[in-house]
Structure formats: C-alpha cells, structure tokens
C-alpha cells in the first residue's frame, strides 16, 4: 500500500499562473458553497431520524400511516415502553455486551493490526488476506456450527458467545486499524527502534497515540455494531429474557398479526440516545487525536 519510509516528496504539479487575488474571492465563494452543501447534507441525513421521533410520539392508530405529522403528541409513549419491557435491565445487558466487546476488541486487535502494518515477517501478506477472507463467510451459515459449539459448552442463554470472540479476533477491527496504522509514516517507528524501544514500547508509545483517531473510530464502530446487533443476541439469549439487550426490545412490540409501531420507534429512539451521546464525545477524541498528530508532523 504505502511505501512511507522512502516516500518521495508528494508530486504536486504546480500552477504558478494562478493569481492570488482571484483565489481570495474564490475562497469566499468556496466557503459559502461548502457550507451550503454541508448544511443540506446534514438536513438530508437527519430527516429520516426525525421521522423515527415523530412516529414515536404518535398514537397507535396514526403510527406508520401516510400522515407524517403527529395529530396528537403522545409523550407518554416514551414512559409506557418502560412498563411494557424492562428496558433498564436491557440497558445494563447492552452496556455489558458493547463495553466488554469493545474492550476485548482493543486488547486483541491493536497488537495484531500493528504486526500486520508495521512488522516484517514471512506470511504477513497471506495473514492479511485471511483477515479479509474471514469477513466473507456469510454469518447465517457460520452461526450454525458456532451455535452448536457454544451450546455444548453450556453457554447459550448468556451473552458470552457474543463477547468472547472479540477478545481474540475481530477481522473488521484488525483490518481497519491496520489501514489506519499504515498512514503513519514508518520513520516514527524506526526512530523509536533506534532509540532502543522494544516493539511493544514502540506500539504503546508511538503508534497508539498517533493512531488515536483511528482507534477511537474503530472502538466506536465496534461499540455501535454490538449495540445494534439484533440477530446475535436473539440467537444466543432469546429464551432468557434477563439477558436480553435493548435491540431485542423491538421484538416485544410485534405480535402475530400486529405491530405497535409507535412503541417500536420509541424504543428505537431511546436506544439511539446513548449511541448519539457516545458519538458526540468520541468525536472530540477524533479531533484531539488529529491535532496531536497534526502538530507533531
């Protein structure tokens, strides 16, 4: 991918003809245009989420009809879902699953990604391809032998079958972290080695701080994927309600011939809140990490 150590100066074909004045006016127009596009994008992205909220406060009769603005505002829907399902218990389970999985992923994937990105060893290319390959087996099929294995270990009915793998191997995270680490110039690692750092020290002292945005992003995705994971918890904890996660709460509002759309969307909205809060905080750490490496450059 990169050849960072010997990277030549970036090949920029200069255009000395361009007058400076023109660039200033252009710069302002550019600013307006970019911000207009940015705002439009933001609104476009937000619209469907607004509908999640609007549906959540509708009456049962109005929810999911062509009538998209609530005729009456049923704020109590947000309270009632707590009576219909033990959401706090589910919240605890969701947090357990997502936090442990994320922690496990960081412990197992950062060293592996480092070995794949910055260490030289025979079989590394093959190992990298295998990591990618591991994402290509359809999960629907993989679930069959794995469920049987967990069941024979007596661990179905708990969240462990979902958490434990993250402590060992998460192909998506290893792949993503490796790619982020590749963007860090090799010279930093080499400098550390010259200073007598062991590989572990180089990883902890140099790579981890520099790859902070990437690590934060990977952790965020891991957290959010597990947070919204529906089929995993359903398969492994479906029959033990105490172990249900928030994402499974949706199943509470679906009957044989009926779906309570307003309650479903109320739970969806509530489930999104912790994720949004987390994102808002995590994005600060992106920025921090970014300035850190940026200044150092």
């Amino acid at each position: 991918m990169t050849a960072t150590l010997t990277k030549p100066p970036v090949d920029v074909t200069a255009d000395p003809e361009q007058p400076a004045r023109k660039r200033d006016v252009g710069g302002f127009l550019n600013w307006v245009a970019t911000h207009a596009i940015g705002l439009a994008l933001g609104l476009m992205f937000a619209t469907p989420v607004v509908f999640v909220f609007l549906t959540a406060v509708m009456s049962d009769d109005q929810a999911f009809t062509a009538d998209l603005w609530p005729r009456e505002w049923h704020w109590e829907n947000f309270v009632e879902v707590f009576d219909k399902a033990p959401l706090l218990q589910y919240l605890v389970n969701s947090l357990t699953y997502s936090l442990l999985a994320t922690a496990g992923m960081l412990i197992s994937s950062i060293p592996a990604a480092y070995a794949l990105a910055k260490l030289q060893w025979r079989g590394r290319n093959l190992a990298f391809l295998l990591v990618i390959g591991a994402m290509m087996l359809p999960p629907q099929v993989v679930a069959v032998p794995l469920y049987d294995t967990w069941s024979s270990l007596g661990l179905t009915g708990t969240l462990w079958p979902l958490i434990v793998p993250y402590f060992l191997f998460d192909a998506f995270s290893i792949f993503l972290l490796r790619q982020f680490m590749l963007t860090i110039p090799q010279s930093y690692v080499d400098a550390a080695r010259v200073d007598g750092c062991s590989e572990f020290q180089a990883l902890v002292r140099i790579i981890v701080p520099m790859a902070k945005p990437g690590i934060a992003a990977t952790a965020l995705f891991c957290f959010l994927f597990t947070w919204n994971d529906y089929f995993g918890p359903l398969l492994y904890t479906g029959e033990v309600k105490d172990q249900w996660t928030l994402s499974l709460a949706l199943a509470t509002f679906k009957g044989m011939h009926i779906v309570q759309w307003n309650s479903s969307m109320a739970v969806t909205f509530l489930t999104m809140i912790p994720a949004v809060v987390l994102f808002v905080f995590a994005q600060k750490s992106f920025v921090k990490g970014i300035t850190f490496t940026g200044v150092k450059g």
Binding site: A115, L119, A134, P145, D170
Partner: peptide, 16 residues
C-alpha cells in the same frame, strides 16, 4: 502480537 488473533481465527473462522 498475533497469538489471540490466530487462536480466534482458528476457532471462529477456521472451524466454521
């Protein structure tokens, strides 16, 4: 560095 990944790979990918 690779040990957990190798074990996990064998268990959760190789075996399936």
């Amino acid at each position: 560095f690779m040990a957990p990944a190798i074990i996990g790979f064998v268990l959760f990918f190789g075996y399936p």
